[in-house]
Simulated assay, not measured.
Amino acid sequence: MFSLRSLEIFYWAAHLHSFSRAAEKLNTTQPGVSQRISALENLVGEPLINRSSKPIALTSVGRVLYGHAEVVLRQVSAMEKDLALHEKTQRRVRLGVSETIVQTWLSAFLEQSSREFSNIEFDITVDVTPPMLRALLEGEIDMALALGPSVVDGFTQRKLNDFPLHFYARSGLLGGEALTYANASRFPILTYPRNTYPYEHLRDMLLRKTGRPPRIFTNSSISTIEKMALDGVGIALVAEGSLQADAQDHDLKQLSTDIVLPPLSFYAYYPLGVGGEILGELAQIAETTADRYAHARRRST
Rank of each mutant, 00 (worst) to 15 (best):
90 Q>K: 12
21 R>Y: 06
285 I>R: 13
201 H>T: 15
50 N>R: 13
221 S>M: 02
287 E>P: 01
92 R>V: 05
58 L>K: 13
172 G>D: 00
96 G>N: 03
292 R>Q: 13
189 I>P: 10
148 G>I: 02
145 L>K: 06
222 I>K: 06
60 S>Y: 01
5 R>K: 14
294 A>H: 13
233 V>D: 14
82 D>I: 08
188 P>I: 07
171 S>T: 06
58 L>A: 11
291 D>E: 13
192 Y>R: 14
135 A>K: 14
149 P>T: 05
84 A>R: 14
15 H>Y: 14
75 Q>P: 06
203 R>W: 09
72 V>T: 07
183 N>V: 03
290 A>G: 07
53 S>Y: 04
123 D>H: 12
65 L>M: 09
222 I>F: 05
268 A>N: 01
198 P>S: 11
7 L>P: 05
132 M>W: 03
60 S>D: 15
283 A>W: 12
257 T>Y: 03
152 V>C: 01
250 H>A: 12
52 S>F: 05
194 R>F: 07
6 S>C: 09
263 P>F: 07
113 S>D: 05
107 S>H: 13
248 Q>H: 09
27 N>G: 12
6 S>E: 15
67 G>E: 15
282 L>M: 09
285 I>D: 10
212 R>D: 00
180 T>Y: 08
264 L>A: 04
182 A>D: 15
174 L>T: 00
166 H>V: 12
182 A>W: 07
200 E>N: 09
274 V>L: 00
265 S>K: 04
30 Q>P: 04
25 K>D: 00
64 V>W: 11
177 E>D: 11
142 D>W: 01
32 G>W: 08
217 F>L: 13
197 Y>E: 10
139 G>C: 05
223 S>W: 05
196 T>K: 08
184 A>E: 14
87 E>P: 08
38 S>P: 05
2 F>D: 03
272 L>R: 12
244 Q>L: 13
87 E>N: 12
66 Y>Q: 07
161 N>A: 10
116 E>A: 04
285 I>W: 15
71 V>R: 14
180 T>G: 11
194 R>L: 09
219 N>Q: 08
266 F>C: 06
39 A>C: 04
273 G>S: 02
275 G>T: 08
53 S>A: 08
17 H>M: 14
231 D>Y: 00
